[in-house]
Design a protein around this nucleic acid. Structure first.
Length: 429
RNA sequence: GUGGGCGUAGCUCAGCUGGUUAGAGCGCCGGAUUGUGGUUCCGGAGGUCGCGGGUUCGACUCCCGUCGCUCACCCCA
């Protein structure tokens, strides 16, 4: 690249036709699945008042925002996530909408952070949310939809797995073993790093938080328990039992749906986000170094905090960057489809008028048609037709036209057939 | 914000411990006797070797800086 050329900003992508084709492949699969689940698509502004993000998300996020003052001096930010916008929109209509509300969106989101594998400064993210339903059936439905959004793209349980846990369960477990409520958040943040830090380092950190070696050890042990082990071990703790029952219910729903073998309980899953109140889940590549493809959970208090409407909600976000890499890795990204059906070949400029007429008639009938624009020799035109991926070449030559015929060549088989010119140009209107 | 790796044609790369007109494959454009592509053969265009400075008789090659890309950390929607 020459040095005087202006390049795109770091972390932002150009979508050449090939990449846009991949993007459309993903988006259309997502939309098909959302519609099958009875979700309605919405969208909001990509630029929002800065306050929408600072008010409840805390200051942590502000450093990673694309934020500036607009010409009217208003602090604004490119949306880093969809949930605040979603919350506002839900709040505006909540009273009128039948519950539960099932909405989805595929916003482009922005984050000012150092780009790295699977994370850019801009990405598209499928958001699916169910609002107004506390029953765990909603949680199960959301997880199932997330799985299906990936199955629709050719991934299955051999590629992906869903880690599921529950904030209420983990909170009541911490209570049960005597960890003070004030420490819960710090404990979660530490456990969140379990898969990238040595275990003894995590143990030390936990000791620092709870200042008790034995309790720290018990926390670590909890992360390895199965759900039934926890149910047995804490059978006399009502809140643990209740939370475990719901979790078992969610996992059971997935099995009953036919999505067995995807999801498993994982007590080490916390997710950094503070606003989750119940089920949390992440979808990961089964044996890869890639980060989570999808993450979500239940957030029953957030709509109240952000939008002022007290409604429970459960949802997830699924980004396109990691997913694209995964699909390419497994050769699940289809080749770019041809964008031309018919290529009009003129043997000489004498046939141009006929070519224009044929091209337009075919286009009116819905065919995708291209013609050569510079009267190149026939061999070049056929080569161009081939490169364009055309299904057939319509060859217009003086000899055939004098008999009212044209040559239609099948570019796949190479076979040629004479057909009457009228059969290509006759149409209504 | 911190640290590692890397910057040579559109793409993937070669270029030995510094030596004079910087190469290949693919792609692109064109030609192979007048109306037939996807194979083949031939030819062509295209690079201030990221940028700036330094060392040297001489730098794509060494040193410094800078910008960019990339991977990881921090953080995580």
């Amino acid at each position: 690249m020459s040095s005087n050329q202006i390049q795109s900003l770091s972390g932002f992508r150009d979508f050449f036709p090939e990449e846009l084709s991949s993007r459309r492949h993903i988006f259309s699969a997502w939309r098909r699945v959302c519609e099958r689940y009875g979700f309605s698509e919405y969208d909001g502004p990509p630029l929002e008042p800065l306050e929408l993000y600072t008010r409840k998300s805390g200051d942590g996020i502000v450093g990673q925002l694309y934020e500036f003052e607009d010409k009217g001096g208003r602090p604004v930010a490119l949306r880093p996530e969809m949930t605040p916008t979603f919350a506002r929109m839900i709040a505006l209509r909540a009273a009128a909408l039948p519950k539960p509300i099932r909405w989805f969106s595929i916003p482009q989101l922005f984050r000012y952070e150092r780009p790295q594998r699977g994370r850019l400064r801009e990405h598209f993210q499928l958001n699916m949310d169910i609002v107004g339903e506390t029953n765990f059936l909603a949680d199960a439905e959301i997880i199932a939809a997330g799985i299906d959004a990936l199955r629709e793209l050719g991934l299955n349980k051999s590629h992906i797995r869903v880690r599921v846990s529950d904030r209420r369960l983990m909170v009541s477990l911490l209570d049960a073993i005597g960890v003070a409520g004030a420490s819960h958040h710090a404990v979660f943040n530490t456990l969140d790093r379990l898969d990238k830090r040595p275990r003894d380092e995590i143990a030390k950190e936990l000791q620092g938080i709870v200042s008790d070696q034995e309790v720290a050890g018990r926390i670590l042990e909890l992360t390895e328990r199965s759900i039934s082990q926890l149910q047995d071990e804490f059978a006399d703790h009502e809140s643990v039992v209740k939370a475990a029952d719901d979790l078992v219910g969610v996992l059971g729903c997935l099995e009953k749906s036919g999505l067995e073998g995807y999801a498993e309980f994982d007590a080490s899953l916390v997710r950094g986000l503070a606003y989750y109140t119940g089920t949390v889940f992440e979808i990961w590549e089964r044996e890869g170094q890639l980060r989570a493809i999808c993450g979500g959970g239940r957030y029953d208090d957030l709509l109240q905090a952000l939008g002022g409407v007290d409604l429970p909600a459960v949802g997830f976000g699924m980004g396109d960057v990691v997913l694209s890499e995964l699909l390419k890795e497994h050769q699940l990204m289809p080749a770019e489809v041809g964008c031309v059906d018919d290529y009009i070949v003129c043997v000489s400029e004498e046939e141009r008028a006929t070519a224009l007429k044929v091209a337009h008639s075919l286009r009116d009938s819905g065919r995708r048609v291209t013609q050569d624009l510079q009267s190149r020799k026939v061999s070049r035109q056929l080569k161009a037709a081939n490169q364009a991926g055309a299904e057939r070449a319509i060859i217009l030559g003086a000899e055939e036209l004098s008999r009212g015929m044209v040559l239609v060549k099948d570019l796949e088989s190479g076979e040629e057939q004479e057909v009457p010119l009228d059969s290509l140009t006759d149409r209504k209107g």
